[in-house]
Lab assay of single mutants.
Amino acid sequence: MDVFMKGLSKAKEGVVAAAEKTKQGVAEAAGKTKEGVLYVGSKTKEGVVHGVATVAEKTKEQVTNVGGAVVTGVTAVAQKTVEGAGSIAAATGFVKKDQLGKNEEGAPQEGILEDMPVDPDNEAYEMPSEEGYQDYEPEA
């Protein structure tokens, strides 16, 4: 019985440690998101679009440190934060509304985080759909 109880105690310690790591990862992701939003706020009209992409990228980098179902929630929060940063930029006159959601080359930025393969159960990952990809044929 002692062996059984000791095993359960060790398992509990492992769960607590994993929860603490997840909590730490979420806190880091939130900190990076805040950094990115402050970065966007300090940019001029020309830099705002690039700044919004930076927020998304920093958040995406930190999301990889967070495991399990938390990833889905962090990704949703990050996307809403990026959308909010863009709205703030438009409201303050840093950028025109028609410039939001495009990178410096004018290509749409939507789907940055949505296409990231995420499995809350950590069982399997699927690649994003290939609808947006084109076949590449090298020139002879």
Rank of each mutant, 00 (worst) to 15 (best):
V70H: 01
K12E: 00
T54W: 12
G31P: 00
A140Q: 02
Q99C: 10
A19D: 00
A27D: 01
G31T: 10
L8C: 02
G67V: 11
A78N: 02
E35F: 10
V118T: 04
F94H: 05
L8N: 00
L113H: 12
A78F: 14
K10T: 03
D2A: 02
P138E: 04
H50R: 14
Q79N: 07
E126N: 09
Y136V: 04
I112D: 10
V71I: 13
V55D: 00
A76E: 04
I88F: 02
Y136T: 05
V48Y: 10
V118C: 06
K43I: 12
G93D: 03
E130I: 07
G51S: 06
T54V: 07
T54H: 06
G14F: 14
V48C: 04
V52N: 01
P117W: 11
A78T: 10
T75K: 11
K60E: 01
V77I: 13
I88L: 11
T22M: 14
S9L: 14
G68H: 03
T81E: 03
Q134S: 05
A140M: 07
F4P: 00
T54Q: 05
H50V: 02
E35D: 13
A78S: 05
P138D: 06
D135N: 06
D135T: 08
P128K: 07
E104D: 07
I112C: 05
Q24Y: 07
S129Y: 04
K32F: 13
G31H: 04
Q109H: 12
G106L: 05
E131N: 09
G25A: 15
A11P: 00
K6A: 11
V48M: 12
L38G: 01
L38A: 06
T44N: 01
P108W: 05
K32T: 03
E126P: 13
Q134E: 06
T75F: 14
A124T: 04
D98S: 02
E105S: 14
T72R: 11
T33E: 00
S129M: 11
E131F: 08
K96T: 13
N103R: 11
A78Q: 03
Q62I: 10
G68D: 13
P117T: 13
G14W: 07
A30H: 02
D115L: 09
G68Q: 04
T64D: 04
D121N: 05
K97W: 15
K21A: 15
E57A: 10
T44H: 01
A85S: 04
V48S: 00
K96N: 15
S42V: 12
E35Q: 03
G93C: 06
M1F: 00
Q99D: 15
G86F: 11
G73K: 11
G25R: 08
K80T: 04
G93F: 03
K21F: 14
E13Y: 07
V52T: 01
Y136A: 08
D2F: 15
K96C: 14
G41V: 14
K97H: 11
V63W: 15
K34D: 00
G41M: 09
V118Y: 09
K97D: 15
M127T: 07
G47T: 13
V66A: 11
A91F: 14
T54R: 10
E114H: 08
A30V: 07
G14M: 13
E126H: 08
V82N: 03
V48Q: 00
L38V: 08
T33H: 01
G67F: 13
E57W: 11
E57C: 08
T59C: 14
V77C: 09
K80D: 02
K60F: 06
G132T: 14
P138F: 06
G7A: 03
A30F: 14
V15W: 08
Q79F: 07
K21H: 02
E123C: 15
